[in-house]
Amino acid sequence: MSDAEVVSESDPFAGTSDLDRKRTIGRIFVGLCAASALVGIVALVVLIADVLYQSWGWVTWEFLTYPPSQFAESYLPGGRGAGIYPALVGSIFLIALTALFTIVLGVGAAVYLEEYASEGRLTAFIEANIANLAGVPSIVYGLLGLAIFVRAMQLGSSLLAGALTLTLLILPIVIVASQEAIRAVPDSQRHAAYGVGATDWEVIRDVVLPSALPGIMTGTILSLSRAIGETAPLIMVGAATSMFVPPDSPLGPFAAMPMQIFDWATMPDATFQHVAAAGIVVLLTVLLAMNATAVYIRHRFETEL
């Protein structure tokens, strides 16, 4: 009855009375979406808070400079002193070796794909292959490392075997990041060098790599910061869960921080939860430093150009 009256008054917005309802639905929907976006942030905050809370008072100078101990009380301030030192050093050596291999191989592969390869089937195959490798679970790389480096090449469960395994793991990411950096080098720069009679290699060495270096370094450091937290591949190659001395040679045994944290986290004594948390604080700090370096390099060279 009243509906008919509304229509007869020729209201220009007649028939839009459902808009209020729609607006309510819209508001609820936005609320849900915004809340979802907060889930990740809240999770991160809670995770960091939990780690900091658990480790409070346990990250001491002794923790950084002493080898691990079987007794939880050794880690306490005023205790005999125990910590993450061998694993911290082991992780740094491991990442340094991995960086060396990754940069050479990753940049080499990216240079081939961007500067030499013509757009043929082989190139498409190699690129599809790299994309697929990026999705292979890290523990499978561990099996590869175990069978090839540890056993077939008889490197044993050494620092070198661990570094080679991690290299294969992060190579796909480093290659793709380096390709992007190389692609961003303007062609006019290449042409300038070719125009004065430079060979392919001279163009790469003098023009392409210097320009692409910041991008390559950023991508590589970010990949390495992924590698430093990897645990599963190291377990498979048989890295020690806990060592009392840092590695003394590339062919010697080693412990790495994630392995040591895993060891602490699985200790029956609940006190070791705090030790594990302290280890995580050290690991995350190293990771943060690496990421900050990458961001700094990117920022510095972006503003320069």
Binding site: P186, S188, Q189, H191, A192, G195, V196, G197, T199, L305
Partner: peptide, 18 residues
């Protein structure tokens, strides 16, 4: 490469190296 050493080239947009 030898050819380009005998025949130099200047491009549309100035392209000095950095």
């Amino acid at each position: 490469v030898a050819l380009r050493r005998a025949i130099g080239m200047v491009f549309q947009k100035p392209n000095p190296f950095p």
